[in-house]
């Protein structure tokens, strides 16, 4: 795995855990332990996102930095690394 793949996987793991807990909360809205866990994971995710975007470009079109349009520069999610 490349460095980018490793970071993407880590980022995705946290995102996935948060998304799955949110879905659980839709039917268990009073589970404060889960809400606490989401907050904890979200803090970690924030740092990871920042590292990722600084290294590999914006994750959403809202994440603009610098004076170049980086959105079209990074590979698309369906492309594998060798393809580029």
């Amino acid at each position: 795995m490349t460095e980018r793949e490793i970071l993407t996987k880590k980022l995705s793991s946290y995102q996935f855990a948060i998304a799955d807990m949110k879905l659980y909360l839709d039917t268990h809205p009073n589970d404060s332990e889960t809400i606490k866990k989401i907050k904890e994971y979200s803090e970690k995710l924030k740092t990871m996102r920042k590292t990722y975007e600084e290294k590999y470009g914006p994750l959403t079109m809202n994440d603009i930095s610098g004076n170049r349009w980086k959105w079209i520069k990074s590979p698309w999610p369906w492309e594998t690394e060798e393809a580029d």
Partner: peptide, 12 residues
Amino acid sequence: VYEKKLQYPVNI
């Protein structure tokens, strides 16, 4: 809002 990554990686 589109996020430029997959929910789970696909590397075939």
